[in-house]
């Protein structure tokens, strides 16, 4: 468990995955769910290498909504003009309407995708309607990463100024030392 508060930044919901992305004090945290199992990974702000934002249509989603609209629309047309059953045609048309709305919304707004690449992992967030929020999240992650990495550089420069005269055993000697003590 992660102690302390965290703030939901966005989600990445696909056909096969459900992921929620949070901001914590020192990292961007992602929780992906498979059934009741939650897998958590983190991109530490001090290890962020690249943050990107781009807009795309989402081919799979677009084709799916287009297909459903066409299928239900054509059934409604056939029921109305060939079978002359207006009530059934209306019911099918109403069923197809949400797909048409989703298709039009996607065509107009597309989807904004923010990706954060770290040294060891990455997180992805998708924003279908909230364009300003996508921009805000992108800016926020960039400024937080910059802030944390600057602070880290400053801290390390202070440490190097007061470093001891004889260097201690470093990570290179770590394996040898541990093997010797075992």
């Amino acid at each position: 468990m992660t102690p302390g508060k965290r703030k939901l930044l966005g989600r990445n919901v696909g056909a096969m995955s459900r992921e929620a992305v949070y901001e914590t004090a020192d990292a961007i945290e992602s929780e992906s769910r498979a059934g009741y199992e939650v897998t958590r990974k983190r991109v530490l702000l001090e290890e962020v290498l690249l943050v990107t934002i781009h807009t795309e249509l989402g081919t799979g989603y677009f084709l799916l909504t287009l297909l459903m609209t066409l299928i239900l629309g054509s059934i409604a047309v056939v029921l109305q003009f060939r079978a002359h059953v207006p009530i059934a045609a209306m019911i099918v048309a109403i069923l197809g309407l949400p797909f048409l709305v989703l298709l039009v919304v996607r065509l107009i707004w597309k989807v904004d995708i923010v990706t954060v690449f770290g040294r060891r992992s990455k997180v992805v967030m998708r924003f279908s309607v909230h364009k300003r929020r996508a921009r805000g999240v992108y800016g926020r992650i960039c400024s937080r990463a910059l802030e944390v990495q600057r602070a880290m550089v400053e801290r390390q420069s202070v440490v190097s100024e007061i470093s001891p005269p004889s260097p201690p055993e470093d990570i290179a000697n770590d394996a040898g030392g541990a093997a010797g003590s075992a």
Binding site: V48, Q149, Q156, P168
Partner: peptide, 20 residues
Amino acid sequence: FEATAFRPPQRRLEVVSVAA
């Protein structure tokens, strides 16, 4: 695509030798 790149510093530990 729009990007912001970072050059994160390598994490260095403050390891003090016994003599120091």
